[in-house]
Design a binder for these strands. Structure first.
Lengths: 213, 213
DNA sequence: TTGCGGAATATGTCTAGACATATTTTGTCG
DNA sequence: CGACAAAATATGTCTAGACATATTCCGCAA
C-alpha cells in the first residue's frame, strides 16, 4: 500500500520508535519523497496531517520538528444531547419550563429528558441581533439546540466545565439531596465575533461526559 | 486574495447566508472550480478543510452536503496541567505521594501543585508492557505526565469527565468540607490498541476546565 | 415490478513542475 | 565585530492532467 496515509503511518511508526527526539528536525520533504518513492506533494500531505494532530511542528525554511508537547490540540468528538440520551437506550424529550425576553435576547429555560426524567437542565439566552428568527421559534416543540443547529450552520466557541453542588430546585428536579455534586457547563458560541448564544448546563447526578481524542 | 483559504472563506460566507440548507448538496468541485477560477485541487482542499471541521459531509459520487449536525466532531485544544497552573500566574510543582507496582504496571499517586497548594490530584497506572522505561523513571522529580509525553510521542484515548463529592482524604487535602463537589476525570491513553496509561484526576474545588472549539 | 449489470459521476489521491513565502545562512562592507 | 544585503533552503500552495474508487442512475431482462 502506498499513498499519503501509508507515508503518515510509517512516519508515526518511526516517531514512536524514537528515531527522532522532541525538538529534533525530520528530513526535508524532498528527502522523504525520494525515500518513499512518492511525489513531494504526497509527503507534504502526510506531514500536514501530522502537524494538524500536533505531532510535529512545521516552519518554512526551518523544517519539520517533533512537537515538544504532543497532544496540545487534539480533535475531539463532542456528543450531542440527543445522542447522549439515545446512547443509553432511553427516549429523548425536551420540556420547556420558562421563556422570556430581555436586553435583545431570548431566554429559554428547560430540560432535556431521558424517558421523561430530567437528563440535562438548560438555561440559554439567544442574541436576537444575530438570530432574529429566535423571536418567533416554537421552543415548546423544538429544543433551542435543534433550532440553532438548523439556523447557524458554522460557529466557534468555548465550553467551560466545572462541578457544583445541587441547589434546592435542582435537587428537587433530580430527586437527590441538596449539595449533591453535579457536572455543570457553560458554553458560549460566536459567529464572526458576535455572541450567538450562551447556555448554562446542569447534568443529572452521576452523568459522565465522554470525549474521544 | 485567492487560494484555498479564500475559497473556504467564501463557502463559509455562503453557508452562513444559508445559500444551501442542511442535507442539501453543494455544487460539484468542477463547478466550484470554474466559478472561482481555480483548479479543482484548490476547491478540494477547501472542501476537505470544511469536512474536517464537520461543516459539510462528503461522499464519492453523492457529492458534498451541508452537515446535519455541525459541531459533531470539533477541534478542541486540551490544556496541559502545567499550562493551566501557570495561566493563573502560579508556580507549577509536582509532589509524589505513593509509588507502587502491581500486575505489570506502575502506579503513581501524587499532586500537581500551584504555588505549593494542591491543584490536581492524580492516581495513575502505567502499563510496563508498553512503556518498560516507566519502571526506572524518577517520578519524584518528574511528573508522570511529563515522562509520558517525552516517551510516547503519539497516542489516542478517551477522557471521561464527571462530578463527585470530596472524600474525607480529598477534603483534608484541599481544605474543604467532605462532600464538596469536585470535577473529576478519568483518562485512558492507547498506543496501537494497547492501554498505555489510565489516570484518575481530581481537580481542586471550583476549578473550571476550559475547552476551545 | 424487481433484480442486476453497466454507464455515469463526484470525490480521493497522485504526479511533476512551478512559483510564493518565510527564514536562516552566508558573505560583504564598514 | 556588527550591520545589512544577498543567496540558499524548506515549506506553502497552485495547476493540469490522470487514474482510482465509491455510489448512484438507468436500462434491460426475467
Amino acid at each position: 500500500m502506498t499513498g499519503w496515509r501509508a507515508v503518515r503511518a510509517d512516519l508515526v511508526r518511526r516517531l514512536t520508535a524514537r528515531e527522532w527526539r522532541a525538538r529534533e528536525t525530520l528530513p526535508p520533504e524532498t528527502a522523504l519523497a525520494a525515500h518513499y518513492g512518492v511525489a513531494r506533494g504526497t509527503v507534504n500531505r502526510a506531514l500536514q496531517s501530522l502537524a494538524e494532530d500536533g505531532v510535529v511542528e512545521r516552519r518554512r525554511r526551518a523544517g519539520t520538528i517533533v512537537a515538544a508537547r504532543p497532544v496540545r490540540h487534539a480533535k475531539l468528538r463532542v456528543p450531542l444531547v440527543r445522542e447522549m440520551v439515545e446512547a443509553t437506550g432511553a427516549r429523548y424529550g425536551w420540556q420547556l419550563s420558562r421563556l422570556s425576553r430581555a436586553d435583545g435576547a431570548v431566554r429559554v429555560r428547560g430540560a432535556h429528558l431521558a424517558d421523561g426524567a430530567a437528563f440535562l437542565l438548560e438555561d440559554r439566552s439567544i442574541n436576537l441581533a444575530v438570530v432574529p428568527s429566535a423571536a418567533t421559534a416554537d421552543f415548546a416543540r423544538e429544543s433551542p439546540n435543534a433550532f440553532l443547529v438548523a439556523t447557524v450552520p458554522v460557529s466557534r466557541g468555548t465550553l467551560n466545565l466545572f462541578a457544583g453542588g445541587a441547589t434546592a430546585a435542582e435537587a428537587a428536579t433530580f430527586g437527590v439531596a441538596p449539595g449533591t455534586a453535579l457536572l455543570r457547563g457553560e458554553r458560549e458560541t460566536f459567529l464572526d465575533g458576535a455572541l450567538v448564544t450562551r447556555v448554562r448546563l446542569v447534568h443529572r447526578p452521576g452523568h459522565t461526559l465522554t470525549l474521544e481524542l
